[in-house]
């Protein structure tokens, strides 16, 4: 007892167990739910789900969404949001379609155009959000409106692209080695994926590495976790946010081209509602809108989970259009409640 004005403070706290981080915990939940759902579908619904091609078709259908969702996850991890990606996809489709068919463009020029749209979008939206500090929701809402209007200004009607080299690329199928099934005639049909899937998988792997092992990736998490702290720790918060939004827009343009490659047409109604699908996939994949928590692998399985549930609904014979939407909504609801309960309980401990 040396000091007269001493402070009364807590005793030494014992070291705590290293628990699961929030990110990993949510990833595990997502993986578990996806597996349970898929296995249940294989066991109970049989036929269709047993074919490997069913799985690969899900990939073919959703390659673009996977890419969009990855971009969305990155923005969400930094604590932002981007609701312009859906209509951007439509804009990219329409621009590429017009370029290929009306302006005798090549595939290279179309890809160039798509990327240019992404880069421009990224620069403008990123600058306004990060350096002028305007709420991302409003900025990307304007971006969404802009792309929507621009699409019809470029061309108001839907049309299919006739360009031959594009058609060849669109129809390119890559067989999956060792996978396949026997069709009704008794012939062996190998399972295949489209080019877009390869792009999507490469992007998922690259982004996974980026988020886990690069300084920039960890800065995304830090900024999302606590912006002020990240600044005090010496992270350039504005640049980090700018890069997140820039990356998201560029990914949206790549996703837009992959979508274009899958559908082969331009239309103002393409990819409508994709921004919300991307957000839903990210959430199911364990990314939190509050920032700082999320995982690209989770996002990938988030997209696949959504797709699986839609397939299950249609193979149950519930054909009316509304069932699919209602089940998807129910699933988002379920996930949110699981996440909120798990995290609340964990934090209480």
């Amino acid at each position: 007892m040396a000091r007269s004005n001493s402070t009364v403070k807590g005793e030494r706290l014992k070291p705590q167990r290293t628990g699961l981080s929030d990110t990993n915990l949510l990833l595990i939940i997502t993986l578990a739910v996806f597996l349970v759902m898929y296995v249940a579908a294989v066991v109970f619904l049989g036929s269709g789900f047993r074919k490997p091609q069913t799985f690969f078709n899900m990939l073919n259908e959703n390659a673009a969404l996977i890419i969009l969702s990855c971009g969305m996850s990155i923005v969400m991890i930094t604590g932002g949001i981007d609701i312009s990606v859906g209509t951007m996809t439509a804009l990219v489709c329409m621009t590429c379609a017009v370029n290929l068919d009306y302006q005798s463009g090549t595939i290279a020029s179309a890809i160039g155009l798509a990327l240019m749209i992404g880069v421009l979008y990224g620069l403008v939206q990123g600058y306004i959000i990060a350096y002028l500090e305007i709420q991302p929701f409003i900025v990307t809402l304007a971006g969404m409106f802009f792309a929507k209007g621009m699409t019809t200004i470029v061309n108001a009607d839907q049309f299919n692209v006739a360009n031959e080299s594009f058609q060849a690329l669109k129809l390119t199928r890559i067989n999956v080695p060792g996978m396949g099934s026997v069709n009704k005639l008794g012939n062996y049909v190998p399972a295949y994926v489209e080019i877009g899937v390869i792009v999507a998988v490469v992007i998922v792997v690259l982004l996974f590495v980026l988020l886990r092992w690069s300084k920039l990736g960890r800065n995304f998490y830090a900024v999302g976790g606590n912006q002020q702290s990240a600044n005090m720790l010496g992270i350039n918060v504005k640049r980090t946010k700018f890069l997140a939004h820039f990356l998201c827009s560029v990914l949206a343009s790549i996703g837009g081209f992959v979508y274009f490659l899958h559908v082969g047409s331009g239309s103002p109604s393409h990819a409508s509602g994709y921004e919300m699908n991307a957000i839903a996939s990210s959430i199911i994949g364990g990314t939190m809108l509050t920032g700082g928590v999320g995982n690209i692998l989770g996002t990938f399985f988030g997209v696949m989970s959504l797709s699986t549930i839609k397939n299950i609904v249609s193979s149950l014979g519930l054909d009316e259009a509304w069932w699919s939407n209602i089940t998807v909504a129910a699933m988002i609801c379920l996930f949110l409640v699981i996440q909120s309960v798990v995290l609340l309980r964990k934090n209480k401990k």
Binding site: G143, F145, M150, T152
Partner: peptide, 12 residues
């Protein structure tokens, strides 16, 4: 249908 583009510019 082109309206949103102009609206976006004004909003920004």
């Amino acid at each position: 249908s082109a309206l949103p583009a102009y609206k976006a510019v004004v909003v920004i």
